[in-house]
Design a protein around this nucleic acid. Structure first.
Lengths: 255, 255
DNA sequence: TCTAAAGCCTTACGTTACGTAAGGGTCAAG
DNA sequence: CTTGACCCTTACGTAACGTAAGGCTTTAGA
């Protein structure tokens, strides 16, 4: 036999009031009532509820949801497919936001001031395409990030100074290697690139080799980052990038 | 000169009314007013707005947001770190939902009926840990999925029958290989595993090698899937899994 | 068998985060 | 100097529940 409101509420993680509301507006009416008027939900009701909650989580209004779940052209499999597609879009958007944050963190390290236009860009239009490929590489590290976040949880102003000092040190080390005429593939350059990667990991987030590649690619691709590095020494942005690539592929091969 | 409401609204992708509202409740009051009483937003206001929108997107109430953004203990970098952490959690949750969908799609192919409890589980408690590692592998394919979805957009009941027939064929092929005493690493077994992977890709979503590994791992790990396969031939679940692994590592090495 | 806690009912007003006019100034361009 | 685009405040409307209030029902235990 069926489920009571309270049971359904517990199962689905919603309040009783919510179920009452869905009944009121006709979005989800229980299959039957007991003699005393208690709502009795059947399996099919729960199936419907699951769909409702799914679409709700994705930000649809109840009105939209009712047209979606009542659409006779969409069967169970169709719903699953649609839901999967919507989730993919949503994840993509959040990935773009992570991107934007990483970007700003980096900009901050180097005293590059972002204009409000740039900072608000991610909210403006929905252009999921833009960040797609690059973002994809980075979502992988959301897991390990949490741990690294705990490590760097509590530093303030003086730490900020040390951060800056360390960044300049790393940068100087790379510049020195370049000005000595060393190749990006040289031991010194790769070691400096590795120091750079660890610098990011220590102060910001767990910077994997893959992320490091994306980051240094940006140093070259983004005008402002490039000019900032090239101000220290012309060609430095590209040098860092290549050293990072060499370092990553070495790390990739010798395990 | 600063920005007018309309300009800010356009930049941030919100309505003017929203900005008025934020002004009303004291969440975001523009830095100044013109002689005629027009709101004039400064850069710092836009920075604040960006934070507000960020936390809003993540589901905080305006009240919560005002305590978050006004917290004097949190500086700019602190916000970035926090935002990144929140995004990571959110992505993890969506990943769990994708997991649940894939799981149900698979169950459906094999006529395994899920109980409502199982189907609602993902909404019940927030246990992001559970799905974490496995989900992580799968998010990667959100990109390619969209394309594959277009391909398989419009099939119905008779297709469903063909799907079932094809699934049984693939399964029979694997069972045959196993009963002939062939190793999972044999050409035949790997070819059958590859056929299985392509079957999933054709009917459901773009099944990469990595996803295929996760899927076949589940065939062994999940009681109901395992017993379903083992009903065809004892040990088949494990055989499929190993053939899939062999197939994936071969595909990985010969490019 | 009685009772108290736990669960359910309906009715109804409150709340959040805006949407949607209405009525009326402001400003740059033609 | 007027017209269209933009801004103001005031105020009621709405969606999706939250939060009682007042009153039956059911069930575990004395």
């Amino acid at each position: 036999m069926g489920y009571s409101v309270g049971q359904v509420a517990d199962l689905a993680g919603v309040t009783i009031r919510t179920l009452h509301h869905y009944d009121e507006v006709g979005l989800l009416s229980p299959g039957g009532r007991s003699a005393a008027g208690y709502r009795i939900y059947e399996e099919s009701d729960l199936e419907r509820l699951q769909r409702i909650l799914f679409y709700r989580e994705l930000g649809f209004t109840l009105e939209e949801i009712s047209t979606i779940v009542d659409d006779p052209r969409t069967d169970a499999l169709g719903h699953l497919r649609r839901q999967r597609g919507l989730l993919a879009e949503r994840i993509k958007r959040l990935g773009a936001m992570v991107e934007a944050i990483d970007y700003e963190m980096e900009a901050r390290t180097m005293d590059i001031r972002l204009t409000p236009e740039e900072r608000l860009e991610v909210f403006g239009e929905f252009r999921p395409e833009d960040y797609a490929e690059e973002a994809e590489q980075r979502w992988g590290e959301t897991e390990s990030y949490k741990e690294s976040r705990r490590r760097v949880a509590t530093y303030k102003k003086e730490d900020w100074q040390r951060l800056k000092a360390e960044e300049e040190e790393v940068r100087a080390r790379l510049a020195a290697a370049m000005e000595e005429g060393l190749a990006p593939e040289s031991e010194e350059a790769m070691a400096a690139a590795e120091a750079h990667r660890q610098h990011i990991s220590r102060w910001f987030y767990d910077c994997t080799y893959e992320i490091h590649l994306g980051l240094t690619d940006m140093y070259v691709g983004d005008e402002r980052f490039r000019s900032n590095y090239d101000a220290t020494a012309p060609g430095l942005a590209r040098f860092i990038r290549e050293a990072a690539h060499a370092n990553a592929s070495q790390a990739g091969t010798d395990r």
